[in-house]
């Protein structure tokens, strides 16, 4: 289970960033008092435009950055106090985390397996399963720098799941993938859910969220603007599809300002 309680993340901007954003305020609130709960056996989607605070939220959950205010519990462990325990429980994938291009997928898989203290036999089984599922075997021994974008993404997904984590956090998992690979990734996330795992993804692709997610949290300007199943969101906004629902909510939030 992931419980986010009143998460606020404020970045300090340097002079260059202030100039770029045309602001004189040296602080930027990326996430503003966000609370949500995601449970095992569901796929929770963070939906929002670029810069809404989705990735920041996921990075806070993954202990890469620290919340300015609020608390996050991952499988009962608080991210700041027990960050190592949290990292044991999660598999985290984002486009700015990459695998070392000098090594092969096979090497990186073993390397992270050992860092996660996966027993040797178990590691072999996991490799067989994941490499087969994602069709990695044919390029497993090639250096990662020689792989195509799609292959790299598949490799990164497999490596992030090496320790069979209970909680899977994927930031825009289908970004840069062709439709066939994207479909297989989405299928795998459903499989994880069926195994009782908690999957939390961020996306700005409405159709993906609509098909994949059990519940959706709409994030606008760092705040949770709405939350619920697709049906609930459609009913709330009296719309027929998620894109229209999103724009209704977006207008409402922006109209308030």
């Amino acid at each position: 289970m992931i419980e986010i309680k009143h998460l606020t993340k404020v970045y300090k901007l340097n002079k260059k960033q202030m100039q770029e954003l045309h602001t004189k305020n040296n602080k930027k609130t990326a996430v503003d008092d966000l609370s949500l709960t995601a449970r095992p056996g569901e796929i929770y989607g963070l939906l929002g435009p670029n810069g809404a605070g989705k990735t920041t939220t996921l990075r806070c959950i993954a202990t890469i950055i620290k919340p300015t205010k609020g608390e996050i519990y991952v499988a009962g462990h608080e991210v700041q106090k027990e960050s190592e325990q949290v990292r044991r429980k999660i598999g985290f994938l984002t486009s700015d985390i990459k695998l070392d291009p000098q090594f092969s997928t096979d090497y990186m898989f073993d390397f992270f397996g050992r860092l996660h203290e996966v027993p040797e036999q178990k590691l072999k089984e996991r490799k067989e399963e994941l490499f087969t599922y994602f069709g990695i075997k044919e390029f497993a021994h090639k250096q990662i720098k020689e792989l195509s974008t799609g292959m790299k993404q598949k490799a990164a997904i497999a490596v992030s799941l090496v320790h069979n984590p209970d909680i899977v956090i994927f930031d825009e998992p289908t970004n840069g993938l062709d439709i066939i690979t994207a479909r297989s990734v989405m299928d795998y996330l459903r499989k994880l859910k069926a195994e009782g795992k908690l999957v939390i993804v961020s996306t700005h692709i409405m159709s993906e969220a609509e098909k994949l997610c059990d519940r959706i949290g709409m994030i606008i300007d760092g705040k949770k603007a709405a939350e619920g199943t697709v049906e609930e969101l459609l009913a709330l906004t009296h719309t027929d599809d998620l894109e229209d629902a999103f724009f209704e909510i977006y207008k409402e939030v922006k109209g308030e300002e």
Binding site: A62, T63, I64, I90, I97, K98, D100
Partner: peptide, 17 residues
Amino acid sequence: GEKERGTMASLLVSPVK
């Protein structure tokens, strides 16, 4: 170099001190 390539972050999310 690892920071530049984005490979450092993968170490930072692994359960290693």
